[in-house]
């Protein structure tokens, strides 16, 4: 599991790659934690790009839930984008699709949460 971080205006874009399982979930949680800090209102928002995540167990879902709750507590926004079909199905089983906002692509996610960030993204 690896996380690459980019900042686009007021959005922190975290590109996650690999497996999020029992073994890697703690590292995933630690990688997210510093970005949740200060995630509030329009100041800072989080977008997790899950395009390169090919495996996620309940341990990974739990980390996402903790992160989303952390953001919500400080009136922040965290959204997810580009889930692989299997991960999308796993979200449905756990009804995570109802509690976490997901978008088909990173661009769609950015467009929904920050016009400035999507403009920067389009510029490349």
């Amino acid at each position: 599991m690896e996380c690459k971080v980019r900042t686009l205006a007021n959005v922190v874009l975290i590109e996650v790659e690999g497996r999020i399982d029992h073994g890697t979930a703690p590292a995933f949680g630690s990688a997210l934690l510093p970005h949740i800090e200060g995630c509030t209102g329009e100041t800072k928002k989080l977008l997790l790009d899950l395009a390169a995540v090919n495996y996620m167990s309940s341990a990974g879902l739990r980390v996402l839930m903790i992160a989303a709750k952390g953001c919500r507590k400080q009136s922040g926004k965290m959204v997810l984008a580009a889930l692989q079909p299997t991960i999308k199905e796993i979200f449905k089983i756990g009804r995570f699709d109802m509690v976490l906002e997901t978008f088909a692509t990173v661009r769609e996610g950015l467009a929904a949460i920050s016009p400035t960030a999507v403009a920067l993204y389009d510029k490349g």
Binding site: S57, L61, K69, V99
Partner: peptide
């Protein structure tokens, strides 16, 4: 209880429905 409200949602319990599915 897979509540659809984030605040009410419990952190655990997802592994079992996943297993069943």
């Amino acid at each position: 209880d897979l509540a659809v409200d984030l605040d009410q949602r419990d952190l655990g319990g997802v592994g079992v429905p996943m297993f069943r599915a």
